[in-house]
């Protein structure tokens, strides 16, 4: 069940996903980036250069952990060895928070390493909520779960995605990593209204937002994280920020990773939107 209520965020503004391609420049120039998100599954090794670099980055920047390895929606038992390693990494690097996905990547102890969909049933909602609670007990903190990009829906679903997520937040006490790009992709593929979806997300449970670029395929949109954030997603993001406030935001880019300046350009666009809300909030405070 619910752990302690959400702690105030120790990060703000627009962070970047930490990618191997940028380590040397980041460490040499220490660019003005408020925080980095670390793909924690890439740091499960015993030693070597990735951990060495991460150690140095942590001395200058706050970090968060993001992964897929919890396989939260799986019907297998939790992989306790994975959680043991994750907890060791948490103790060593002190991330501001840890996040995973409303999805599963494994069953029968076989790992597919890709985010797979759940039917939106009470059974699946109870299962993932229970596993999130177990994960939170092991890690000793409230985790964040991310809404998926979906490319199919199941005939046995009993509710829509946003209702499913509301229940998961309620039952497990976890918080939400709201991926605005995923909402846009899923809304297009599944034919729902992305703005209404945002209206259904509880106001005080979003602790991080993801932005990324999708790809146009013949009959659907695909979440490749390999492009600039699309105009339609910036519009949706603006709406999300107006609704939820200046939530820490991340630019995700995993395929064909561009140079750091391109990512900083994307971050500036997000910051401009975040700052509009901050300015309005300051005006309101002064008026009071």
């Amino acid at each position: 069940m619910s752990l302690a209520s959400s702690k105030p965020s120790l990060i703000s503004g627009t962070g970047l996903g930490l990618r191997f391609e940028h380590y040397q420049r980041i460490l040499a120039e220490k660019p003005d980036i408020p925080w980095f998100e670390v793909l924690v599954d890439n740091y499960m090794g015993k030693g070597g250069l990735p951990l060495h670099y991460l150690e140095q980055v942590c001395q200058h920047y706050p970090i968060t952990f993001h992964g897929v390895g919890m396989s939260l929606g799986s019907t297998d038992p939790l992989n306790l060895e994975y959680f043991k390693q994750l907890k060791q990494l948490k103790q060593r690097f002190q991330p501001v928070h840890i996040s995973d996905h409303i999805a599963w990547i494994s069953v029968a102890h076989q790992y597919m390493h890709d985010l797979l969909p759940l039917p939106y049933t009470i059974e699946a909602q109870d299962l993932i909520s229970d596993r999130i609670s177990q994960a939170q007990d092991i890690l000793g903190e409230t985790i964040l779960v991310e809404n998926p990009s979906s490319y199919l829906s199941f005939t046995n679903s009993e509710m829509d995605e946003v209702t499913f997520i509301q229940g998961v937040l309620e039952k497990s006490g976890c918080d939400l990593l709201l991926d605005v790009n995923n909402i846009f992709v899923s809304a297009h593929n599944q034919g729902f209204d992305a703005y209404k979806y945002l209206d259904g997300i509880p106001l005080n449970r979003v602790r991080e937002i993801h932005l990324a670029g999708f790809e146009y395929r013949e009959n659907y949109l695909y979440d490749t994280h390999g492009y600039e954030v699309r105009t339609e997603v910036w519009d949706l993001y603006q709406y999300a920020i107006q609704r939820f406030g200046a939530i820490p935001t991340l630019i995700e880019w995993d395929n064909d990773v561009p140079d750091l300046d391109t990512l900083l350009g994307e971050a500036q666009k997000a910051d401009a939107i975040l700052n509009q809300v901050k300015s309005r909030s300051n005006l309101k405070t002064r008026a009071l």
Binding site: D114, L152, S153, N219
Partner: peptide
């Protein structure tokens, strides 16, 4: 049989997206 077919895509085409991803 457990996947919703859409106007543009068969159930198999939906599964194929995940298969290609994995």
């Amino acid at each position: 049989q457990a996947i919703v077919e859409t106007d543009k895509m068969s159930a198999k085409a939906h599964i194929e997206i995940y298969r290609n991803g994995v």
